[in-house]
């Protein structure tokens, strides 16, 4: 496996920490006028998403992680795995539950997602920023309330629950922001 020295540290560098792939989000070199130099490093664990901080003695080496982001089409889920395909090569990938845990409810068949691969396996999935989903369940709203002054929960076809304006009815399609988990507008 390739190693990377602290002198090559920069934001976005992928490396292994305790066997898990991480990406550097901040790297600060501390070079006192005398004595040993250190790197103060903030990095995100790509599996848990947690941001951690370590101080590395300059000259230390870490193992590079084979991590890459790729655009894949979501095909279907068989309950255990979520299947994706590279639309150019038709190569298929299966993601386990951990990789899609946070985003399952935004996965729509045929949508193109950004999938992070580690050693060729999906470890995290980023759905499109906005998705269109059908409302499958919500309380009937008040007739004539089109100003959207209030809100009510609505369950969407993927199981996601969002706050929608009172005028939204079952069967309507709505646009949602997958990053904030919020209703954006009615789909035309």
């Amino acid at each position: 496996m390739a190693t990377v020295s602290t002198s090559e540290f920069k934001n976005g560098l992928k490396f292994l920490m305790d066997g898990q792939p991480c990406t550097i989000v901040d790297n600060q070199l501390v070079q006192p006028g005398k004595g040993q130099a250190f790197n103060r490093v903030k990095f995100r664990n790509l599996i848990t998403g947690r941001v951690l901080e370590n101080t590395f003695k300059s000259g230390e080496k870490v193992e590079a992680a084979d991590v890459m982001d790729t655009e894949l089409q979501y095909l279907y889920s068989d309950g255990d795995f979520w299947h994706f395909m590279d639309p150019a090569t038709f190569e298929q990938y299966q993601a386990g539950e951990a990789a899609v845990a946070d985003v399952q409810k935004w996965l729509i068949e045929q949508d193109i997602c950004t999938v992070t691969l580690w050693n060729g396996d999906p470890i995290s999935v980023l759905p499109p920023k906005q998705v269109i989903l059908e409302v499958t369940e919500t309380d009937p709203g008040l007739k004539g309330d089109t100003a959207g002054t209030g809100g009510k929960p609505a369950t969407l076809s993927t199981g996601a629950v969002v706050q929608v304006p009172l005028f939204i009815q079952i069967g309507e399609k709505v646009i949602c922001n997958t990053q904030t988990g919020e209703y954006v507008s009615r789909a035309k």
């Binding site: 250190f38 103060r40 951690l52 901080e53 370590n54 101080t55 590395f56 003695k57 000259g59 230390e60």
Partner: peptide, 8 residues
């Protein structure tokens, strides 16, 4: 609460 130090 100084973050973990590696390589010392």
């Amino acid at each position: 609460q100084i973050p973990e130090v590696i390589g010392v």
